[in-house]
Simulated assay, not measured.
Amino acid sequence: MADQVDYVVVGLGALGSSAAWHLARRGHSVVGLERFALGHDRGASHDTSRILRHSYHTPAYVELTLEAYADWADLEGASGESLVTTTGGLDLFPVDAAIPPGDYTASMDAVDVDYEAMDGADVERRWPAFRLDDDVLALWQPDAAIVPAARGTAAMQAQAVRHGADLRPQQRVVGLTEVDGGVEVTTPDATIRAGGVVVTADAWANDVLGHLGVHVPLVTTWEQVTYFAPDDPVRFSPGELPLWIWMDDPSYYGFPTYGEPTVKAAQDCGGPPVDPESRVGDDPVDELMRARLHRFLGDLLPGSGAPVRSRRCLYTLTPDRDFVLSPVPGHERVVVGLGAAHSFKFAPTFGRLLADVVTTGSSATDLTAYRMDRPALTDPDHAVTWLV
């Protein structure tokens, strides 16, 4: 006999844990299914730190960040945990950068977000750890912050459970079908009927959606972050060093020390395509990726030290690097959330919006740009661009 609940959430990384929390806090009965253990390190919601920032390339994205800051504050209030560490952030554009700085300044201007433009010499005077050419354009955004990845996800899971959600690890979905008035989800251990389903399975989204004959054009890459040990960690601590993003191709990003005396950095979209199912056992370090990052960091932040450890994670990328927050066309009781490998900052918000869509069919926030029937996801010849 099938279990009967209001909603099922498939995939309990950051977005799914948030959706389960928001649905349960509204009084709905919720089952959350996770293919692996809760808090596992096979996806994209583990490890320590992620960037929360207002600076983005379109006004719509900047407006979304306003909601993100409010929803992180909501999660802090609900959980009683301090989750947002404000450090300020720099977007660094070399001459002829592949990412146009005008898109960022125009978008922040349109939404009245404060920022300051400066050159490389200005940056070095304010934050002596940097070494930059004078003609680098830097956009300083004082509200940029660090949010914790694994701990933030766990906080949303704890809130979901507090409100009555049933979170079930080690439950792979082996069936997803529409039935009269709802959807039926099958795992090796149970059959669950629900009024709607939220699929936030990221690299495994097509494994779930394939039961409906649905396929999203996704590429999964195997990324790597590395931690470096400076001789003088104080020079790289919050207050002495902000968050930073190198806005070119290749693009890099990094953090001040956070929770330990190391500096974390990585290349954005620098890893090879990978089948997520092929990742078994310990993840080997990619020495070429680490050496390339070490050289770049040595030039940008002299004294940042030698690498002490690296961690691997998955990026699940749409062709246009935009999100998916959408009902499945023709299967509107199934709603998909995909973060395109830059969504952790939006996790508390996206869970709320996905809860809106699965319960009411719409949201007060305009999600048209993130529909599954947009050209980037339906036109096989659509240009692929991952720089944001």
Rank of each mutant, 00 (worst) to 15 (best):
A2L: 10
Y7R: 05
V10F: 02
A20G: 08
L23N: 02
A24Y: 00
R26I: 03
G27P: 11
G27Q: 11
S29E: 13
V31K: 05
S45G: 08
H54N: 05
E67R: 15
A70C: 00
S79Q: 09
L92Q: 01
D96Q: 08
I99C: 02
G102S: 05
S107D: 12
M118A: 09
D122F: 05
D122N: 07
Q141E: 15
A144C: 09
A144M: 02
A149Q: 08
A155E: 01
M156T: 04
R168N: 04
Q170W: 10
V173E: 05
G175Q: 10
E178H: 15
V183A: 07
R193I: 13
G195C: 03
W222T: 02
Y227E: 14
A229S: 15
P230C: 10
P238I: 11
W244A: 01
T257N: 10
T257Y: 04
Y258E: 08
P261L: 09
V274N: 00
D283G: 01
D286P: 04
M289E: 08
R292I: 14
H294K: 13
H294W: 11
V308H: 00
F323W: 07
P329H: 06
V335Q: 03
K345I: 11
P348T: 12
R352M: 10
D356C: 09
V357Y: 00
T365E: 09
A369I: 04
